[in-house]
Write a protein that binds this DNA or RNA. Structure first.
Lengths: 193, 193
DNA sequence: TGACGGTGAGACACTATGTGTCTTATTGTC
DNA sequence: GACAATAAGACACATAGTGTCTCACCGTCA
C-alpha cells in the first residue's frame, strides 16, 4: 500500500489541523505548513485539493480501523465468538476514538453524514473487504457479505444512539444479542468447519 | 458598569468562539451567530469590529480577574498576609484559567503579548485601580502603586516561567518571598494602622 | 560530469469569504 | 400609534485561499 512517508505526514497533518480548527476552518495552507511541505507538493499528491485530501484521510482511517479490528479477531474460537468479538471491539474503538468524538462535537452534520448517508456505503465496502476473509470459513461468500453489512449497520446505529436494552460493548449483552438476532438468521447457511 | 445582557452575551460568544477556533480563525459572523445577534447589532455595540470587540473582552476578563482576586483578599489580617494572599490567589487564578491556557497553546505569540509587552501596562493599570484601595491602609498612595506594579510583574513572570526556587502558589514559598524581597523595600513607608 | 525526478518558493488570476456600512421591515414597548 | 432597537440582507470593498504555473534548487543516478 501507500507507505510514502511524505503522504503519511500530510495526512497526519490534515488530521491534526482538523482536530484543532474543525474541517470548515482548515485551509490547504494550514495543512501544508503543518506537514512542512509546499503547497505545490500537496496539490501534486492530492490533485483536487481539500476534498480529495480529506477523502484520502477518511479511507486511511477506515482501513486502519478495520486493520486493528481484524487483529483483535484473530483468536476467535468459533463463529459466535468471532461475531461477539467483532461487535465488541468495533464498539470500543468507536467509543474511544478521540478524533471521531472531536469531529462529532465540532461538525456534527458532516461527521454524521460520514457515518450514515454519504459514508456508510464505503464503510460497508471496506468492512466487507477486511472481514470477509474471516467469515469465509463459516459462511458462503454471499452470505458473509450480508452478515458484515448487517453488523456494520448495527454497530454504528448502537454507537450513535445507545440503547437501554443492548450494549454492544458489554460481553454478555453482545453475546446475547448475537445469539438472539444474528445467528438464527444465518444458521441455515452455516457450514461445518 | 455595563450590565447590558446582549453585550455580555456577545462577549461570552466571542470568548467561546475564540476557544473553539482560535483568535485567528474567528470571524465577526461566527460571533454574531453564536450570540444570536445580527452583524449590524454587533457593529453598533463595538464600532471597529473584531479588534475593538476583543479589546473589550480583554478588559472584561481583566476586571473579572481582579474582582475575584479582591474577594479573596478580604480577610487579610495584616500587610504581609495581604500580600501573600494576593500573589497566591493571583497565581492560582492564572494557573487554573482554562481560557488563558487554551490561548497560550493555540496563539502563544498574541497571548504572550497580552501578558507582557502590549498588555502589561493595562494589566498594571487595572491592578492598581482594583488593589490600591486594599493597600491604602498600609502605604501612601504612591508607594502603593509601586507595590502593585511590582507584584503584578512578578506574579506574571513566575507564572510564565516557573522558578526552581520560588513557587508563588505555595503558602510557605510565597510568604518567604514576600518577607525577603518585598516587605523590606516598603518597610520605611509602612504606616501604623 | 550531466541528465533526471522531486521539491520549495513564489507569481498569477480567480474565487470565496469576511468586512463595514447601508436601507428596510419587523417587533415589542411605552 | 409613535418609538427605539433590532434582524435581515444588499452592497462595494478588502482580504485570504485556491489551483495552476514556472523556475531554481538539490540529491541521485548513470
Amino acid at each position: 500500500m501507500s507507505l510514502d512517508p511524505a503522504e503519511t505526514r500530510v495526512l497526519d497533518a490534515a488530521k491534526f489541523c482538523c482536530e484543532r480548527w474543525g474541517l470548515a476552518k482548515v485551509t490547504i495552507e494550514d495543512i501544508a505548513n503543518e506537514a512542512s511541505v509546499s503547497r505545490a507538493t500537496l496539490y501534486r499528491m492530492f490533485p483536487g485539493g481539500k476534498d480529495i485530501l480529506f477523502e484520502a484521510l477518511r479511507v486511511r482511517e477506515l482501513e486502519d480501523f478495520f486493520t486493528r479490528l481484524a487483529v483483535h479477531l484473530d483468536g476467535a474460537v468459533d463463529f459466535e465468538d468471532l461475531l461477539v468479538r467483532c461487535v465488541m471491539h468495533a464498539t470500543h474503538e468507536l467509543r474511544s476514538d478521540q478524533h471521531l468524538s472531536l469531529m462529532l462535537a465540532s461538525e456534527p452534520g458532516d461527521t454524521l453524514g460520514q457515518l450514515t448517508v454519504d459514508g456508510l456505503p464505503r464503510i460497508i465496502r471496506v468492512a466487507t473487504v477486511f472481514l470477509s476473509p474471516l467469515v469465509d470459513g463459516y459462511l458462503p461468500r454471499r452470505e458473509g457479505a450480508r452478515l458484515v453489512e448487517l453488523l456494520a449497520r448495527l454497530v454504528i446505529s448502537y454507537f450513535l444512539a445507545p440503547s437501554e436494552q443492548v450494549d454492544l460493548g458489554e460481553p454478555d449483552s453482545a453475546r446475547s444479542f448475537i445469539k438472539t438476532f444474528i445467528l438464527p438468521a444465518f444458521q441455515p447457511s452455516l457450514m461445518r468447519s
